[in-house]
């Protein structure tokens, strides 16, 4: 069992090591000039050095604030509307066509409009993140809540749970696995969108760092924010994974 696990971890590390080795060898054997492709050592060295740089930390903070604000609003709004649509036919009749129209629209196309209406500051980026993360969360909440086993609800009602409490005491916890799946998708989308919005127009944040570096052809600095956003995504994802296994400890097969 343990040997099997070690093997699978080793297998997983292999492509990453190979990737970095290929990267290094492209430079070592002179296939790519360092002005176009900086050596991995230089990139990771710069990344480590940047962690003691106030500007870099400021950029990370700006990105994180937008990410969390946008994602947080999406979770609250998405879960609320998703639950409401699952339990109320009237809400369902309104929400369903709206979602069908709004979900497939590339939200990033709304960004210029948001800029014009909300200005170039945090608000437009946060709204964009919310708009993008909202639909996966809303839809999975809705599907999770509409598939709650009817007999769970009956059991709780027979035990004397008032109708209005059923939503919070049965439907919400029973839909939790599905809700958290939606949140995980929403989180990754948030990471991606916040970065892109910052690339398109911003004065700070990781995305802005990349664009700035691209303008001045600082290739090393172009790779640093990309690696940073990947690391942020990984960290946030594992935090969510940990939260998930705690919240869903009673559910079969997490």
């Amino acid at each position: 069992m343990n040997q099997e696990r070690i093997n699978s971890v080793l297998l997983g590390i292999t492509p990453i090591v190979l990737f970095i080795a290929l990267w290094q060898s492209l430079i070592s054997f002179g296939f790519a000039p360092t002005s176009l492709l900086p050596p991995p050592g230089a990139v990771f060295g710069k990344l480590a050095k940047d962690f003691f740089n106030g500007d870099f930390l400021h950029d990370i903070a700006a990105t994180l604030i937008r990410l969390f604000a946008g994602f947080g609003i999406a979770v609250v709004v998405g879960v609320f509307i998703g639950l409401a649509a699952a339990v109320s036919p009237a809400v369902n009749a309104v929400v369903k066509p709206l979602v069908r129209v709004l979900a497939p629209i590339p939200k990033i196309a709304l960004y210029p409009a948001l800029l014009l209406i909300l200005g170039f500051d945090h608000a437009s980026k946060i709204t964009l993140v919310t708009a993008d993360a909202l639909f996966p969360i809303l839809l999975s909440t809705y599907y999770g809540a509409s598939m709650v086993e009817q007999k769970l609800i009956w059991s709780a009602m027979a035990a004397g749970t008032p109708r209005w409490q059923i939503l919070f005491k049965v439907v919400l916890p029973a839909a939790m696995p599905s809700i958290l799946t939606g949140c995980r998708i929403g989180l990754v989308i948030s990471c991606i969108v916040v970065f892109l919005a910052e690339m398109i127009t911003s004065t700070d944040g990781l995305g802005h760092m990349l664009v700035q570096a691209a303008r001045t052809f600082q290739t090393v600095d172009m790779f640093v924010p990309l690696i940073m956003i990947s690391m942020l995504g990984l960290i946030l994802n594992s935090l969510l994974h940990w939260l998930r296994s705690y919240l869903l400890r009673g559910f079969p097969e997490v």
């Binding site: 769970l152 009956w154 027979a158």
Partner: peptide, 30 residues
């Protein structure tokens, strides 16, 4: 439905997010 009539289903319909004691206590707390 009301607590004077208690159902037991073929599908058990236990609350998966509560442990055994929590499931049994649910009705009493209610």
């Amino acid at each position: 439905p009301g607590p004077d009539r208690g159902p037991v289903f073929q599908e058990f319909a236990l609350f998966p997010w509560k442990n055994v004691l929590g499931n049994v206590m649910y009705g009493l707390r209610q």
